[in-house]
Amino acid sequence: MTEWLENQLPKMVLAPSFIAVLVFVYGFIGWTAWVSLTRSKLLPKYELKGFVQYDKLFASPRWDTAFGNLFTFGILFIVIAMVLGLVLAIMLDQKIRVEGAIRTIYLYPMALSMIVTGTAWKWILNPGLGIEATVRGWGFENFSFDWVVNPDFAIYTIVIAAVWQSSGFVMALFLAGLRSVDEEIIKAAQVDGIPTWRIYSSIIIPSMAPIFLSAFIVLAHLAIKSFDLVIALTGGGPGYSTDLPATYMYAMAFSRGDIGQAASSAMVMMAVVFTIVVPYLYSELRAKNHG
């Protein structure tokens, strides 16, 4: 009896977490999926009505802006953060004397809350007293930098702040990758007289493909989940010009009292994450099981 118990113990220890994940992750996703197919408004209804919420969602100009912003913001954020991160990592890889200190400086924004980052950049970017006013104070009277209050450009201020926050992290990822490339190969290339930039572009960077993928996944994930930064920096405005799916969902759920719209927009976010993360996780887990 005790032996049986002893054998079951590992399962019993894991069981609560397993049940919690089943209920609070998969069960809840199921609930949201179900409600997204109903005519729920302020309270959830459970009678299925097909894809009315999704039709309404894709017909809504506000969602259109939010979904479009996700791509504008996501692509710019991912590309700029990756390029900047790679450049910084390569520069730091040149046997820099104070590397530790510089790395610490580049990476500290990652420790901050997005609300703090948003608050800081909101202040820096405000036209009345921030950068615009400062540059005008230097004598450039016509200098204009009002992106944060300009509906056509406000989304780019989100990119600026998000890149500032995350690029140091990408640098750390790439730096670890650069360091893991086999030194012998690099030495052999140097002996052969291959110029440094060629060593990077033809040997080191191609061998870091998995790290590019990791960085991409992490950044894409951050972009889709971006919520706090928008709330703190622009509040989704001016108007709803900087809405993202995450802020749209929140507005529907907690201020508009439209649960059906909230659920369907959450499901679309989920689908976007799915298409990016699932293939990655699948290959990761397969590699782990076989390696």
Binding site: F28, A246, A253, A263, A266
Partner: peptide
């Protein structure tokens, strides 16, 4: 990896 929006309502 799920976006937490998907569990917020329930």
């Amino acid at each position: 990896f799920i976006p937490f929006q998907v569990v917020l309502l329930p």
